[in-house]
Design a protein around this nucleic acid. Structure first.
Length: 881
RNA sequence: GCAGGGAUAGCCAAGUCAGGUCAACGGCGCAGCGUUCAGGGCGCUGUCUCGUAGGAGUUCGCAGGUUCGAAUCCUGCUCCCUGCACCA
């Protein structure tokens, strides 16, 4: 099992990479008008490229290249999402600073990207950890603040009491929630932090989802879910001596069945109650809001709330299933009509009352809650009213009730108590409170990194912290929180339009022309947060009148995973295939071809050595065939009219159509299959006959360009070998010359070959001497047309035609046949087209069956043979030797 | 529980939106033949059942329905995946 010598991919690939760079092939001019904006999610620079990157970036690169070949201006930029916790951790581990580590990683990844042949406009490279990028985070933060979209309020953080530091969610490990560094159980603390009030845009972001018809349904569903809009009612329950406590409910119609009242452990009233009652406090301590829902536990407070509908007193519990951040943190318990309340009531022996009856049928309310709508019962004056109507009337009748829309979406907490991020441009002054840093003092730059065992390194840098108040000039302290890195990535696609702008984050006019991103490709893990924040920021910027576009991404494609034996590659499982090694062994083109050919972009697929090898061998054969042709391998110039030449010419056109459609619809695997088919056809052409020079050359020129988006290096090599001067990357996409019904012709040939095989098999003919193929007579085509056109009486219509009537019995028989299949009749090729298509394909029959092929018109064939021919189905007579 | 997606021949997987040319593209695996051929590569073919002339039968998760006609449309059910979830 020896491997054949393969082509010198290393030399070819680096040669063309240099030439592209020298010629600035992938540069997008600022003057471009509405270029096709193709964007892959920019990576976090973690060191080496992995297969996920390779797939992601090959998809956008191939599409961008295809667009360029189509003559479009293309914007295909790349950058680095380079702030974030891993750099800080790596820095501490390696005793270097995060910046150095990050820049090293960027260098490595950039080199690897260039080795992969990705055609980016590196003039537009963005690095978010550079002051010239993050100053605009600060600038935007200030605009948000001015618009009332940034506010400071209490937020929960993870706190390690031993390290005395705040932890990010990913630094809290396991179910037990232990600090990643010292293993101490993590606590929760409330700190004053900065929020962007994305909830102000909740309705708009939700409604906008309807317009995103080029996004996958799954992602749209996830976003809807995340926003979680819910229409309901707020209403107060009076707790004597403590006042009205507000609850939120979507089922106000069940209020007569509210037999208990429940508070979250963190609710204000709970706090008030336990402050005066140490025993209650101890009991509440035992409740665990994080416990999963199997068992509902609660503590009776001794207080009673008054049901505003019934006027009855109901017991007030503190219960672990009531969450502080859902609704108002308090709820009315309706055991009869809510399964969760039902379980709680059963556990604590609380009354279960039915106040809604289903329209039909009975329910056993003691066994299970009835959660559907219905007709009210035992609800005083509301008896007999439908649920929906009852809700409306109760809102109107109850003093404290009001319609209210609730969201699951929370405001976006952007404060991070970390070093490696954008400093929030705020100064805290004892006199003036939090004050924004003036624009002219931006950027607030990060100081040198000082590793600290505890807390936020920024707090330890006195020269950073100590400053004066921009308002009063008095001593003040800088904000030491930095921004969530999602801030960086929520507008970077705008910055790509004018990455060097020094006075504005982006050029409004150009962004209006170039946005939205036409094709956005990246991992599904960003389906919610990154995309939602980007949508929010884009809208907010729009409302600052800096942009006219409201949705940043027109088409979003989450690419599938590259797996090994059905499992996702991951370094923790140790089942990764290194792109660098693949590039070394097989070259970038092979990796790209395999990844793109294996499956459509949205599907997962398995990495296989076999597939890689076969991609590599294919590339080698393509190059070999082109080089053999270039070396003046025998072709002829005085053919060109033979059926076989025509056949190949037509197939070239058919392939162009199919492959173009594949690229257009992101079905690269289909496009590549077609293109490979063409190469295989050219090989057989060369085997069968001395190829016509023009046809063969056009075939090669076409094939090379069809592969150019996916295997850019080797196709440049081919292009040059074919005598072309420029880059194939800048060539024109091939155009189909004939405007024919390729589909029908291909079908006819395939069916006829299939039929011959079938007959040979069934009739057990080993070595046919001659195969007679007879196309249907003109009049049968005519009869078919008449039959298709006729509404009812097919036989009548056909026989009404004078010319057909002359055919007598034969016409009548065929008419009956047509009548039977009347509904499913479809138009056939014309007799001439049918004959020509088969004539062109004769060589395939000869090649396969090794027999003489006699293609005839019905008029030239014996009647008993011609008889069975119908449009689209020639008669076949096989003669044995 | 809610939301979204899915179930196709040995395996992977198209087709479903716009019903008929669908026994159902393609790939893998397996088998045969060819190639002055090393069992490799390449080319060709076969791979639901029956059939000595292109035919017939039974198939596209299960059960019904609509239609002249359903893998495709509708209803119900079962199972799988993904996201969210003690969400009031």
């Amino acid at each position: 099992m020896q491997r054949q010598d393969t082509y010198d991919h290393a030399a070819i690939e680096s040669k063309w990479q240099e030439r592209w760079a020298d010629a600035d092939v992938y540069r997008t001019s600022d003057d471009a008008t509405d270029p096709s904006y193709v964007l892959a999610m920019f990576p976090y620079p973690s060191g080496d490229l992995h297969m996920g990157h390779v797939r992601n970036y090959t998809i956008t690169d191939a599409y961008a290249r295809y667009q360029r070949l189509q003559g479009e201006d293309v914007l295909h930029p790349m950058g680095w999402d380079s702030f974030g916790l891993p750099a800080e951790n790596a820095a501490i581990e390696r005793e270097i600073n995060p910046r150095e580590w990050t820049m090293d990683c960027i260098d490595t990844m950039k080199t690897q990207m260039q080795s992969m042949g990705f055609g980016y406009d590196w003039n537009r490279e963005i690095t978010t950890c550079e002051p010239d990028y993050y100053r605009w985070n600060q600038w935007l933060f200030k605009r948000f603040y001015e618009e009332g979209l940034a506010e400071r309020k209490g937020g929960e953080v993870n706190w390690c009491p031993s390290c005395e530091t705040v932890l990010a969610d990913e630094q809290v490990e396991g179910e037990a929630e232990l600090c990643w560094r010292c293993g101490t159980p993590v606590e929760s603390r409330t700190l004053d932090q900065w929020f962007l009030t994305i909830t102000d845009y909740a309705d708009e972001l939700l409604d906008g989802i309807d317009e995103l018809d080029e996004w996958p349904d799954s992602v749209r569903g996830m976003q809807r879910n995340w926003i979680g809009r819910q229409e309901g009612t707020t209403v107060e329950f009076e707790v004597p001596e403590f006042g009205g406590i507000e609850v939120f409910t979507t089922r106000l119609d069940t209020i007569y069945g509210a037999t208990f009242f429940a508070l979250a452990p963190g609710h204000e009233l709970t706090q008030e109650l336990i402050a005066d009652d140490p025993e209650l406090a101890t009991q509440v301590e035992t409740l665990d809001p994080d416990a999963d829902g199997d068992e509902k536990r609660g503590v009776f407070t001794g207080e009673y709330a008054i049901n505003p509908a019934t006027g009855e007193e109901i017991p007030v519990y503190v219960a672990d299933f009531v969450l502080s951040d859902v609704g108002t943190g308090a709820l009315m318990g309706v055991p009869g009509h809510d399964q969760r309340d039902h379980e709680f009531a059963t556990e604590y022996d609380i009354d279960i009352e039915q106040v809604v009856a289903p329209a039909d049928g009975e329910v056993e309310i003691d066994e299970e809650a009835y959660t559907g709508d219905g007709v009210l019962v035992d609800s005083g004056e509301y008896d007999g009213i439908e649920s929906a109507a009852a809700r409306d009337r109760l809102v109107a009748d109850l003093d404290t009730a009001a319609n209210h829309t609730q969201y699951r979406l929370r405001d976006w907490l952007i404060s991070r108590q970390r070093y490696w991020g954008t400093p929030i441009p705020v100064v805290h002054c004892d006199e003036c409170g939090p004050v924004m840093v003036p624009d002219e003092e931006l950027p607030v730059e990060l100081p040198e990194f000082v590793p600290t065992p505890t807390g936020n390194p920024l707090e330890e840098v006195d020269s950073f912290v100590e400053t004066e108040c921009p308002e009063c000039g008095g001593p003040a302290e800088r904000e030491t929180d930095t921004m969530d890195t999602f801030m960086d990535s929520s507008w970077y696609f705008l910055r790509f339009t004018s990455p060097d702008s020094e006075d504005v984050p982006f050029d409004t006019e150009r962004a209006n022309d170039w946005m939205p991103v036409d094709e956005y490709v990246g991992g599904i893990e960003h389906a919610i947060m990154h995309l939602l924040y980007s949508r929010f920021v884009t809208r907010a910027i729009g409302d600052m009148e800096l942009l006219d576009v409201r949705e940043p991404f027109e088409h979003y494609l989450p690419q599938g995973m590259v797996q090994l034996d059905g499992t996702a590659m991951s370094s923790s499982k140790g089942n990764v295939v290194s792109p660098v090694e693949i590039m070394d062994e097989y070259g970038a083109d092979t990796a790209r071809l395999f990844v793109m050919g294996a499956a459509r972009p949205s599907k997962d697929f398995d990495w296989t050595e076999r597939g890689v090898r076969s991609s590599n061998e294919f590339i080698e054969r393509l190059l070999g065939m082109v080089e053999a042709f270039a070396a003046d391998e025998t072709t002829t110039t005085d053919a060109g009219e033979r059926p076989i030449d025509e056949y190949v010419a037509r197939e070239i056109d058919a392939t162009i159509d199919e492959a173009s459609a594949g690229y257009e619809n992101f079905r690269f695997n289909d496009a590549l299959r077609e293109a490979r088919g063409l190469v295989s056809l050219l090989r057989r052409y060369r085997e069968q006959a001395t190829p016509d020079e023009h046809t063969f050359e056009r075939g090669l020129h076409t094939a090379v360009r069809l592969f150019a988006p996916v295997t850019p290096h080797v196709t440049e090599e081919c292009w040059t070998a074919l005598g072309e001067d420029g880059f194939v990357a800048a060539a024109d996409w091939p155009e189909a010359a004939h405007d024919a019904d390729h589909e029908a012709e291909r079908q006819l040939v395939a069916n006829t070959r299939e039929d011959v095989r079938h007959i040979l098999d069934v009739a057990n003919i080993e070595e046919p001497a001659a195969i007679e193929v007879v196309v249907a007579p003109e009049w049968k085509h005519r009869a078919l047309d008449v039959a298709i056109a006729s509404d009812e009486d097919v036989v009548g219509s056909v026989m009404a035609d004078e010319e057909l009537r002359e055919r007598g019995e034969a016409a009548a028989d065929y008419a009956k046949d047509l009548a039977e299949r009347h509904q499913s009749l479809t138009e056939a090729l014309t007799p001439a087209a049918e004959f020509a298509a088969l004539e062109r394909a004769t060589w395939l029959f000869e090649r396969e069956f090794d027999a003489e092929i006699r293609l005839e018109r019905a008029s030239d064939a014996p009647d008993d043979v011609a008889r069975t021919a119908t449009p689209g189905r020639p008669a076949i007579e096989i003669h044995e030797g």
